[in-house]
């Protein structure tokens, strides 16, 4: 391992995360239309999460196996959600329920 154990890069990551927190707040004040506002917020959250995973959790420089584990959980969750929505969003009359 040839790490320098310097804290400096982590400071940059922290600052980036804090900036993105304000960006997501700013984006929420803007009306992008129904599903798009949520997707923008999701995109920013995923960016922040990636920063944490890649730098704080040292996935950068980790073995391929660890990288797979890091991505795998989220990927599987995506499949889960997609199939549930495949039902919920295609049910006739569900949206007029109330």
């Amino acid at each position: 391992m040839s790490e320098h154990h310097s804290l400096k890069p982590y400071v940059f990551v922290l600052v980036g995360l804090l900036i993105l927190t304000w960006v997501t707040y700013g984006a929420a004040l803007w009306d992008f239309g129904h599903p798009w506002s949520d997707l923008v917020a999701l995109l920013i959250a995923m960016t922040k999460a990636s920063l944490v995973v890649v730098f704080f959790m040292h996935v950068k420089g980790a073995t391929p196996l660890i990288k797979m584990a890091a991505v795998g959980g989220f990927f599987w969750l995506l499949i889960f959600g997609a199939f549930v929505l495949a039902d919920v969003l295609t049910r006739p009359g569900m949206l007029e329920f109330l």
Binding site: W76, I79, F83, A86, D87, V88, T90, R91, P92
Partner: peptide, 22 residues
């Protein structure tokens, strides 16, 4: 085996579309 669970919901008012996929 992870993406077949919907076949337990064929008659539980799951949408026809999802039933077809599952």
């Amino acid at each position: 085996g992870f993406i077949v669970w919907g076949h337990h919901l064929f008659v539980s008012s799951q949408s026809l579309y999802a039933g077809l996929i599952f």
